[in-house]
Design a protein around this nucleic acid. Sequence first.
DNA 1: ATAGAATAGGGTAATTAGGGTA
DNA 2: CGTGTCCTAATTACCCTATTCT
Lengths: 71, 71
Amino acid sequence: METEDRLLTPGEVASLFRVDPKTVTRWAAAGRIGSIRTPGGHRRFRESEVRALLEGDAGAQATFDSGHAQP
Amino acid sequence: METEDRLLTPGEVASLFRVDPKTVTRWAAAGRIGSIRTPGGHRRFRESEVRALLEGDAGAQATFDSGHAQP
DNA sequence: ATAGAATAGGGTAATTAGGGTA
DNA sequence: CGTGTCCTAATTACCCTATTCT
């Protein structure tokens, strides 16, 4: 239970995903990622959510056994 | 131990390996290489992992002999 | 209040995903 | 079985200016 609701800027999220800040804005506009709007209209993103999205299957090092067994 | 290594685009990885970006996509789809998906569906690859793969036999890291198991 | 950096918004090229084929 | 090339659709990157944030 992390109560850490640290907010990240579009530029931060963009650097994490290796994309353009505009792309992050587009994700928020499309509802693909939760966003908080500042009274001025700028967006902020929850670090926990961003980290969850970054946890793709990059760490999954396929336990590739010699699965060539043919029944 | 969690290092924030940079992410590479399919085109970058393809240039490093001198293959087609489509081939890199196939590697990711087959689980031969870890991949992170953007909310839009595009893939990003960890530079550290790619560099480790680029080491080839030089490092003989023997993560696992992928595939050709001897009969 | 002023300055500098970052962000929002729209529009257009380049890259990528996916399937099917050689 | 793995890789390269064909196609279409979707996503992303870079161009601009005005507004907002520090």
